[in-house]
Every structure is written in structure tokens, then in C-alpha cells.
Write a protein that binds this DNA or RNA. Structure first.
Lengths: 184, 184
DNA sequence: GCGTAGTGTTCCTGACTGGAACAATCACCC
DNA sequence: GGGTGATTGTTCCAGTCAGGAACACTACGC
């Protein structure tokens, strides 16, 4: 494997390193629960595309559906684990990319009435609070579990990171709102 | 215009509301300088695709290249301004999406040696500092300018937002590093 | 026995990235 | 004056990816 796969492949591969075999559907759920705070959760269709790709490369293998199961679960192979580790060690991380629709709208705030901009920021605050509640739930569910090799330590760290990030953004938006109120 | 264009269209359209006519190339530069901190900067090829689309919809119009100019500059039309305003008022903002390669790697940190993870975080700190210096430059260049209707007030606000965000992330990463050091 | 919510998968369209390729202009140095 | 390299400027292509529609099967309550 000399060439990197798309990052989404490694993200999904990573979700399979915590000891569970997952179907495409479960993988998507797992991504929505844990990954989406730091990496845009791939569309359902994309998950299946990736599983096919990963199977072709021998990085995961389907455990054929038994008589009781609806569909096949995927397990990461030894080669998959090696490739993921190689990627972690060799591929440079690059900088985060962000699509922030609220910031984008604020940037052209001069086109609309200031009251509208304030409403936008207030509704963003609400969404931040909801997001934070979600992530707190995730964090708690992680603390309870254990996995081979203390694997859940890092997801916990990342969840804490996310929570602090959200708290920070809340504080920033509140300050911005205050400035908008004061400056008229 | 009953249907929304892709968000990238509005982002580029927004860059044309600050009083300058820009070529595709200049538009890309502008996006790299100001937009990229909040909205992933579109590829060069995408900028030209968008300009074509916006022209087709009558939202921008090319000012034909005079004898001294290399290429045509684009100006936002009255219709373009109306459409951007309509979008601001009608289209819901949605939640930010993030691709954070450092968080993604930290999530599967159990696969590699902890020293490698620490090195990853430290190098991210360096990048954050560089990013912050860039953004400080942008912020200063905004303060000096003025535009019709106090248009640069909002980009200044957004730049402040970005700076606080970066400072916050720096603090979080430093705390994470400390925890990794303490816990072994 | 019937609706509806959840599980599970596939397909298609269009958005978007990244890189390669091309060409013209300008500055600089030898 | 001629090379060399950076900057401006644009186009094309392959492949990634998102979003939504469509489909089917199972479980549960009424």
C-alpha cells in the first residue's frame, strides 16, 4: 500500500479498531455518535462505497451473515490494522477545514437588518447547547466502557476536547452578541 | 430564483459585495485571505465554475477586459445582491461541519506510541500559531479600510471571532498535552 | 391485519477537490 | 539580450463525496 486512501476510509477503519464488528448501518450510527464532532459524518451511501473499497484492499473482511443475522458485519483485518497504523505514522495531518454557515452569514451582515443577524446568533447559541448535550451523552457512554489496550482513553480525550471547544464557541458568540447590542 | 444555489456560490457572491470588481484569480486570493478561516476555500477550478454559474443566472456580470487588462473582472449585479439578501433571510444556516485531521488521529491514538501522539499535538500547536499570525494580519488590513455602508464592520467581527477561536484551541491542546504527560 | 418506526442497502445526480497542463507577463541576474 | 523562475490567469479531468430517492424486510403496538 504505497498510496493513501481517502481520509474517510481511515476514519471508518478507525471505528472498527475498538473491538466490535459492525454492519454498514451500524458503522454509520457509530460515526454519527462519535465521529461527527470532528470529522463530517459520511453519508450512508458513502459508507457502503468505502466498505467495498476497504474490502477490495483486504483491509476489512465481511463476516458472512449467519442464519439469524440480517446482513454481514465487517471486521478489520490484520492488514487493515497495519495500514491504519502506517497512515497514522506517515501521512501528515494537514490543517482542519471548516464550513461555518453562521460565520459566513455574519461576514455579509451589512446586507441585512442587524436584528436579523442577532437572531441568527441567538439561534446558533441554541444549537450549540443541543450539540453540547449530545456530546456529553457520548462522553458518559465512553467512560463506562473498557476495551482491549485501554482503547477508549483516546475517544474520551477527544470528547473532552470537543466539549471545551463548544463551551468556547458559546462564550465567543455571547460576546459577539453583546458587542452588536452595544455598538447599535 | 426559487431554488438555492450551492453555498459556495453565495460565499463568492458575498466577496463581491465589498465594493471591488474581481477576476476569478483575485476572487480566489480574496477567499484565501479572508474566507478560508470559516469556509473551506474553493479550489481554483471551482471558482471558475461558480463564476460561470453565477453569470448564467445573471447574478454577476463580467466587465470585459480593456486593452490594459489581462482578463475580465466580475461585478455583482443588482439581481445578485437581491438574491444574496434573499438567501441570507430565507435559507436556514445549518450546523458547522468540521474535518479535523488531528482529532481524527487522536481518536485512534491507541494504535501508535504515545510519543507520536504528543508530537502530533505539538506540531498542531505550531500550525495554530502560524494560522493565528495570518489571521491577525487580515484583521489589521480590515481595520484600515472603509467601504460603503460600513461594510467592513462584519468582517472585522468575524476575524475577532476567528482569533478567539484559535486562542481557545491552543489552550485546549496545551491542556491535552499536559494530561498526556501526567497520565503517562 | 395494519400502520409506522427502525434496519438495511442501492442508485443517481451534482458538488467539489486536487492536480496537471497550458500560456502570458514580469522581474531578476548573468 | 537571454535565460530562469515567480506570478497571473484559465481549463480540463478523474475521482471523492453529499444528499436524496427508492426499495425491502422486520418488529412492535393497536
Amino acid at each position: 500500500m504505497s498510496q493513501d486512501l481517502p481520509t474517510t476510509s481511515y476514519a471508518l477503519l478507525g471505528l472498527l479498531t475498538f473491538g466490535d464488528d459492525l454492519t454498514g448501518y451500524e458503522l454509520k450510527q457509530r460515526a454519527d455518535r462519535t465521529l461527527r464532532f470532528y470529522w463530517v459524518s459520511p453519508a450512508m451511501s458513502q459508507v457502503y462505497t468505502e466498505l467495498e473499497r476497504l474490502t477490495d484492499h483486504g483491509l476489512v473482511s465481511p463476516r458472512e451473515a449467519g442464519p439469524n443475522q440480517k446482513s454481514s458485519k465487517y471486521r478489520i483485518t490484520a492488514k487493515g490494522r497495519r495500514e491504519l497504523t502506517r497512515w497514522l505514522e506517515e501521512a501528515p495531518a494537514g490543517f482542519p477545514t471548516l464550513k461555518h454557515p453562521v460565520a459566513l452569514r455574519l461576514l455579509v451582515g451589512h446586507l441585512v437588518d442587524p436584528s436579523r443577524t442577532r437572531a441568527l446568533l441567538r439561534s446558533h447559541l441554541d444549537e450549540l447547547a443541543a450539540h453540547r448535550a449530545d456530546l456529553e451523552g457520548v462522553r458518559e457512554s465512553l467512560v463506562g466502557r473498557d476495551a482491549p489496550g485501554d482503547a477508549f482513553r483516546y475517544p474520551s480525550l477527544v470528547a473532552d476536547w470537543g466539549l471545551e471547544y463548544l463551551a468556547g464557541e458559546q462564550a465567543i458568540i455571547e460576546k459577539l452578541l453583546q458587542r452588536l447590542d452595544e455598538e447599535g
